[in-house]
Write a protein that binds this DNA or RNA. Structure first.
Lengths: 340, 340
DNA sequence: CTGAAAGCGCTTACAG
DNA sequence: CTGAAAGCGCTTACAG
């Protein structure tokens, strides 16, 4: 039925291990003549090696897991920001001869099970909380290289790649301060003392303090990072924070909601309130007013994640320091001087 | 190192096949007492079966491929519409004990290779052209169940699930005609005589003919399904089609671009030109004006795709007729009577 | 440059 | 209710 190594070997009149060597590019051990003949027969017969047999016999599966949090009831937590990363990672892996197992993880305890079940050569963690990443121990990961994207967890086992969130927030805050804003709301998900949002808050506060703005004029609004929560916040923003003239939202999708809520409530944007986001999603350029935001290098995140993970897998490199990617301010139409 | 079936068997004082039976739920063949003891030891030792060994020994891999077109240079072709499907399919599979291999396919010829390499139990095709789906032969698919989403290809091997595109287009056209529009542009990607876009064109034309509108008043604009192409079309729409008062775009992302292009050119939407889309993406409710569109049941597509594929895998069912999901008109603010 | 043999960790008839 | 044995399709030292 299925064409096996053995069938090729018989057709070529050589041993299975010679065919195996040809397939695996160990041609130094095989004569050019034999190599050619074997290759021709492989092509003729349309032979495709069995990945599971290979995985079982070798120490390598050439399978990489992309692990994403997912309550079993819910679908995967694929934020607009994470979506672009998916495709880029698959592409990078495929070009290097690896395959991608996409796995939703309802409980971080499942991570170890996922790694061992398919003998994954490595895994990328996308969207987990820093507390969860920090809790990952050698006992659960074994010797499998694992890399966390956007993590500030102090876990040498998972150091990965992320954006320069602190600087991004500084750019956003400095932009608003430079326009003349003095009362600025920080809107984002609740945060602890570690993680992406915390870093952005730190950068935000640092810049405002340098500008001499008191903390009480720059309150924090904790909301979920969804369009709907943004709309709700926008609708009540000026009642909750009289005198506020600007909002820094930690995600574009949230900023877009806030703008919609403000406009629906009759508050002109950026006339009465300026809004700046973070991510630079595609849609951020499509809405009205077009969103001023902090752009992340999403393809760069994905490409570097693949490079670093494979370097560890193939080269046995130790986990290096986290790679921090630059961000930049993208000025569009949702910010202006107060009262403009 | 790794805990194996054999280790569990030794610890429990039984044979490996008894442990195997317990794991695979064939408890009818094992005493309740033994079952309990084995289960306890499995939990204690944190045993995780080797999926590749299992796949090799059994006829089943419990691995499903999600195959998506991807030029090797490009990232995956993940349109906003397809993205929601990803997560839903992963979730459905995971709940049923299957895993998902996400694979970009640069050339349809790779499909067979993908299926055989990992001994996939089945595969879902997402985003392929109907010509490509139609060309799939038993020779390349073998006996592996394959299901194509959104396909009109007349290939019994791949019948899958899709929306009622014809009716969707009728709803869109009837909505515009009902508002009083008489000159309506059909904007979408170039199409052949089979496929999603062709069906929508047929529904569009049928409705307009019933309304007595001559074909020359309802021209076709072939553009790529991207925001950018939409903007370009919107900018030149009234020069290209003087007197036109409405556009039916075959995708929301395209409709959104068209609206942006129109507004940038000083054409009020829906005041001078109404625009209706197709998909009902999340962002379609966020833009200004909020987009009137035809909603597809995307979670339904994914859930039914999983159900049907697994029915074929587990039950050996023959491929059934395609499942056609209902669509519905979502009226928002981008359409109005002409000159409103 | 080439090969025989063991082994990766499971499942599957088959036998009892 | 339980087990011994063969086999899934590869790779890996080891030998020559």
């Amino acid at each position: 039925m299925r064409v096996r190594l053995k069938d090729i070997a018989e057709a070529a009149g050589v041993s299975v291990m010679t065919v195996s060597n040809v397939i695996n590019g160990k041609t130094a051990r095989v004569s050019a003549e034999t190599t050619d003949r074997v290759r021709r027969i492989i092509a003729e017969r349309g032979y495709v090696p069995s990945a599971s047999a290979r995985s079982l016999a070798a120490k390598s599966s050439r399978l990489i897991g992309l692990l994403v949090p997912a309550a079993s009831e819910d679908s995967l937590a694929i934020s607009p920001h994470n979506i672009a990363i998916f495709g880029q990672i698959e592409r990078g892996l495929r070009k290097r001869g690896y395959h991608l197992l996409l796995r939703g993880v309802a409980d971080p305890a499942e991570i170890g099970e996922a790694l061992r079940s398919w003998s994954l050569d490595g895994a990328v963690l996308l969207g987990f909380l820093d507390e969860e990443v920090a809790a990952l121990r050698p006992g659960v990961l074994g010797r499998t290289p694992v890399l966390a994207i956007d993590s500030y967890a102090d876990n040498p086992l998972t150091t990965g790649v992320r954006s320069d969130d602190f600087t991004g927030a500084r750019l956003a805050a400095a932009h608003l301060v430079g326009l003349g804003h003095r009362r600025i709301v920080f809107a984002g998900p609740a945060f602890t003392d570690v993680g992406v949002v915390h870093e952005r808050f730190l950068g935000f506060r640092a810049t405002l303090e340098e500008a001499g703005l008191p903390a009480e004029d720059c309150p924090v609004e904790s909301v979920n990072t969804t369009h709907g929560d943004g709309v709700a916040l926008g609708a009540r923003l000026l009642q909750a924070h009289p005198g506020c003239t600007a909002v820094f939202a930690t995600a574009d999708i949230l900023a877009i909601g806030i703008i919609e809520g403000l406009i629906a409530a009759g508050v002109p944007v950026p006339g009465a309130v300026s809004v700046i986001g973070f991510d630079d999603l595609d849609i951020s350029a499509y809405i009205t007013p077009r969103l001023t935001t902090i752009a992340q290098d999403i393809p760069g995140k994905a490409a570097n994640a693949v490079d670093r993970l494979l370097a560890r897998i193939e080269g046995g490199d130790r986990p290096a320091d986290p790679l921090v990617l630059d961000v930049r301010l993208v000025e569009r139409d949702s910010t202006a001087p107060p009262g403009a």
